[in-house]
Simulated assay, not measured.
Amino acid sequence: MSRAAEVRFERVWKCFGAGAVAVRDVSFTVPAGTLCTLLGPSGCGKTTTLRMIAGLEYPSEGRVLIGGRDVSGLPPAERDVSMVFQSYALFPHMTVLENVLYGLTVSRRPRREAEAAARAALEGVGLAGFEARLPSELSGGQQQRVAVARALVLEPSVLLFDEPLSNLDARLRRRMREEIRDLQQRLGLTVVYVTHDQAEALAISDKVIVMNRAVIAQEGSPRELYDAPVSEFVAGFVGEANLLPATLRGLDEQRAEVLLGEARVVLPRRGLADGAVRLALRPEAIALVPAGEPGAMLRGTVSKAAYLGGVFEYTVDTSAGELFVVAPSAGVAHRAGDQVGLRFGTHGTTLLPGDGALA
Rank of each mutant, 00 (worst) to 15 (best):
E253T: 14
F130S: 07
R177K: 09
G103F: 10
E131P: 10
F91Q: 08
T95D: 09
V158W: 06
L90N: 03
Q339A: 15
I209D: 03
F16G: 04
P31E: 01
A77V: 05
F324M: 11
R145I: 09
S319E: 15
P76A: 13
E113F: 00
A32Q: 08
F16L: 14
E10F: 04
G55F: 03
L65Y: 10
S82W: 00
V194G: 05
T190V: 04
A89M: 05
A235N: 07
T49V: 05
S136N: 15
R181V: 00
G40F: 00
D206E: 13
A217E: 01
P245H: 11
R51N: 15
C15F: 01
I204L: 07
Q142G: 05
A273C: 01
P328R: 13
V266D: 14
F16Y: 15
A280P: 02
T318V: 07
L38F: 10
R171T: 12
G309L: 04
L172K: 05
S139V: 04
E179D: 07
T37L: 03
A276E: 12
L138T: 09
R177Q: 11
P156N: 06
A291K: 05
M211A: 12
M1C: 05
R108I: 00
L90Q: 07
G62A: 07
G354H: 08
V311P: 01
M1Y: 08
E322S: 15
G271Y: 07
F233W: 04
A306M: 08
A149I: 02
Y307T: 04
E6S: 01
G310W: 00
Q254D: 12
P164S: 11
A121K: 13
V191I: 13
A291T: 03
P283V: 08
F161Y: 10
G310T: 09
H196W: 00
K46S: 07
V230Y: 00
R343L: 06
A333D: 00
M211Y: 09
V238Q: 02
D162C: 07
L248D: 06
L38P: 01
A291R: 11
G356A: 02
G295A: 04
G73Y: 08
G337E: 09
E78R: 12
S42E: 01
Q143C: 14
A214K: 06
V316H: 13
T37S: 14
V230S: 13
I180H: 00
L165F: 03
L74D: 02
L308N: 08
R278S: 10
R255P: 00
D317A: 15
V12C: 05
R249K: 12
G73S: 14
E313N: 11
L298Q: 12
Y314R: 14
E219N: 06
G341N: 03
R269S: 04
G40R: 04
G68A: 07
P268W: 11
A228P: 00
L127K: 04
L38S: 01
P222L: 00
V277I: 15
Y193Q: 06
A296T: 07
P92A: 10
G68Q: 05
A296R: 15
G236T: 01
D355F: 03
R264P: 04
I66A: 09
A336C: 09
A276F: 08
L97Q: 09
D182C: 02
R213K: 15
D169G: 06
L281K: 08
P156M: 07
A327R: 15
T49H: 08
L202R: 01
P268C: 11
F28Y: 14
Q185V: 12
G239N: 01
V215F: 03
E131D: 10
